[in-house]
Design a binder for these strands. Sequence first.
DNA 1: CTGAAAGCGCTTACAG
DNA 2: CTGAAAGCGCTTACAG
Lengths: 351, 351
Amino acid sequence: MAELDVNIPLRGRPTISDVARHCGLSKATVSKVLNLPPDQCPIAEPTRAKVLVSVEALGYRPSWQGRALANRRTHMIAVVNADPYGALPRGQYWEIVDQLDDLLSQVGLVPTFIHTYAGNPRAIEMLGDQRFDGCLSLDAQPKDVQDLLRSNNTPTVMINADVDNSWTNLTFDDKAGTTLLMQHLIGLGHKRIAYNAGRRVNLHSSAIVRASTYAQCMRDAGLEPDRPFVGPVSEFIDRAIDGPYKPTAIVDFEHWTAVHTLQHLWRRGLRVPEDMSVTTFNDTYPVALTVPPLTVAALPVKLITERAVQLLTELIENPTREPRTEMMSETLIVRESTAPPKVSNGAGRPG
Amino acid sequence: MAELDVNIPLRGRPTISDVARHCGLSKATVSKVLNLPPDQCPIAEPTRAKVLVSVEALGYRPSWQGRALANRRTHMIAVVNADPYGALPRGQYWEIVDQLDDLLSQVGLVPTFIHTYAGNPRAIEMLGDQRFDGCLSLDAQPKDVQDLLRSNNTPTVMINADVDNSWTNLTFDDKAGTTLLMQHLIGLGHKRIAYNAGRRVNLHSSAIVRASTYAQCMRDAGLEPDRPFVGPVSEFIDRAIDGPYKPTAIVDFEHWTAVHTLQHLWRRGLRVPEDMSVTTFNDTYPVALTVPPLTVAALPVKLITERAVQLLTELIENPTREPRTEMMSETLIVRESTAPPKVSNGAGRPG
DNA sequence: CTGAAAGCGCTTACAG
DNA sequence: CTGAAAGCGCTTACAG
């Protein structure tokens, strides 16, 4: 007999009908006992007890599929990430994901993590098939994903997703964050500060704002910014040490890059912070545990995730709610990777 | 009119009935066109075309909930983690998760990550409600979780989960891995090697095997093992430097601990590897990027995840398949955190 | 080649 | 206080 034969219950498990039959009551009664809080449950106590006995006896557990169909709620939330590098090397993604998991489960929601980068058509498919009660985007999303969420009326909260304000959106104040870092460095006495934009061209507003704010802060302080750099960290460090600009401090776009920076400076024999100050964004593992620990502009992960879950649940309750954009501020955490430049000329030594 | 009123389709979206009505055909026909591969689809080409036009015109996308109920397949896989610290500080969990996501989606499966540590009753609930076609456990699981999976007949593959062989299980050869590390260190000439068991008592077989293999390797080489240590890394380092044993090399139980070790050695003014060699398990971020990069015993993540997905899909196709336990071997990756001990006495300097 | 009907496992007005 | 019936959106023998 075929495995999926129509009359065999799922993996041999009892259904609500089996329970009803077992206790000689109706499915409706069983359903009420199981779903209504005791104080609002119209079922008489002895009847209630009978149901519970049968449930126990059969080891019955309601099928989520049946429930989801009848209720039109799956209690699942898509947490969407578009980064082609996977989740690892990103800004405080890890912490955000962990927090989200916690907070969502407190309100009875389950996150499923979906990667929407190119080459994953199933992601698009899933976002469109009623599987999720809502969506939390941790990234800028491609246009097709945005269109899909929109045409589906999926309650969605975008987190730093670089979208127009027709979406409910949580953004980060990268301008203020970068300024904090720059003021710290300039206050320490640095005159030549280099900015490392990372491995690849990044058109996300965070990338653009951080780079331009860096240059702006330099000019505002009467200093000359370095030429822009995108590429491998080893090249960046070689240029910093051997090139004409001779920075005494570095601002890295992301923690992953900063960790590489520390390693390459070590390879080239420079000490941090004595020979070079290093800073970056996002206070994530292992940024506080490097040698030396890194000074960073940090995201308020707790606030962000709490707010995101709150906005999302509001949107699920009331899908027609006005979209809004809220901005969260970054904070400066000073650690041991920054210090005043050396009193000598302070430049990296050649080769 | 209430949001969940029975005749309002989900979020206003068209159903298969709407499509059928729109093209003047039956639901059965629409369903066939949508689900059967063209070559096995009995529907006449012009009819087919009509259906497709209507689907397009209405923007119809099948409801997964309806499908799941009718098919008894959700195509979702629970990826279960029991670690109370969350996913971050664990052995190559991150890489495993990323790989799993990739591989599962290639076979049309979607992972949902579930934390089963105490205080998360919803996890248990979800594992029991037919939501998942199968389960992948990344950890030792509490007995109630095991019982639930068993009583539910959930096809499950355990990964290093410390279970009896009534389960399909992938284990790691920690004994061989630890031996690799110890032989490397002893071959370098180290006579006093300390083992750091981590922050807390850990009864997982991996922890036990690594600790006992460490001691065994020492004795086999005619060397005296250090006393066992469990606790904060700073204490471990203080003891290593100030205590009587005076190790010249350290084996850390996990990368998180090793990263702390590097930082505390730096704080105490010791150089790695000149004053102290450091090694650990799991080749995960940032272990190759620390200063200096760490020598590790690594897990074959790619093999593990491929095998796990393979075994799981087999189990889903054929739930009565014999359980089996397979062991994967660890490999040694030598980096710059290990070197011969100093020719002098080699002990850490006091205070 | 196409469709009517029953079924998947649940919930929810509604009637009694 | 309890239950019969219809419905959620789909699929699948089966009949024609």
